[in-house]
Amino acid sequence: MSDGIVWLVDLKGWMSSVVFARGISPEELAVRLGGAPDGATEPITDREVEDLGVEWYRPGDDGDGVVRVGECGGWSFALEYWDPTGGDLLEEVSRDGVEVVRYVPIQEHPPAMVDYARDGVFLCGFGLREEIWRWGQEPDLLLPDLVAAGVLSPDGKTYLPPEDEDYQTGYRRSLGVLERRFGLSLSPAYLRDARLPAYAVRGTPRMTLDG
């Protein structure tokens, strides 16, 4: 059975992002996000990212960004940490016919965000539980899916579930739209004990484990 992505709603305290890409390898995804082609670490766990020589902020300079990359369900993925690059590079990552979905799992408010790009073009994006505000070159691309899932009215201007609905319930409904439309899946193991190669994509992290 597929793990899907709806479970991502339940992440607590993990404020990075996930970039899914279809049409390139995990290694190429890391490179398009800013990693060096030969820059992979030995496979590490999610928890071990905290032990890398990473700085949130440097005065007058970028903070450090790190990704761990892998493949699941026919999509490559990058788990983004610290000061990531995916939000700036969606068009670059999606060039040459590649599809890209990015999920930023912010809790409640400001809302979690989703973006979709294909073949070098940013097509659509919206905040979860704020789907009435959509942007991109084709902002209504996913409107039929959101209507079918009971998220929006057919004109895309009214949010249908009650305003006092728990935000996690609304997030699950909209992530389910992405899960079904694109066939996205990510095993929870990748955010527990599974080991994946990591790349530096921004700044100058040390990229070696302490100890």
Rank of each mutant, 00 (worst) to 15 (best):
K12L: 06
G13P: 00
S16M: 03
S17I: 05
F20A: 06
F20M: 07
F20W: 13
A21M: 07
R22D: 06
R22M: 00
G23M: 07
I24W: 02
S25L: 06
E27F: 04
E28F: 00
R32D: 07
L33C: 02
L33W: 02
G34N: 04
G34C: 08
G39Y: 04
G39E: 06
A40S: 14
T41F: 01
T41I: 05
I44Q: 02
D46W: 08
D46Q: 11
V49K: 04
D51Y: 09
L52V: 08
L52H: 11
G53R: 14
G53F: 10
W56T: 11
W56H: 14
W56S: 10
G60L: 15
G60N: 14
D61C: 13
D62P: 11
G63E: 01
D64T: 01
V67E: 09
V67L: 07
V67Q: 05
R68Q: 10
R68H: 09
R68A: 14
V69L: 07
V69W: 00
G73W: 13
W75A: 11
E80I: 06
E80T: 08
Y81T: 05
W82H: 12
D83P: 01
D83S: 15
D83E: 10
T85Q: 08
T85A: 10
G86P: 01
D88A: 15
E92K: 15
V93H: 11
G97Q: 01
V98T: 12
R102P: 00
P105A: 05
I106W: 12
I106D: 10
I106V: 12
E108G: 01
P110R: 10
P111A: 14
P111R: 10
M113A: 13
M113V: 13
D115P: 00
A117M: 07
R118C: 09
F122D: 03
C124L: 14
G125K: 13
G125Y: 04
F126P: 02
E130L: 14
E130M: 13
E130F: 13
E131G: 15
I132F: 04
W133N: 11
R134G: 05
R134A: 12
R134L: 12
W135A: 07
E138K: 15
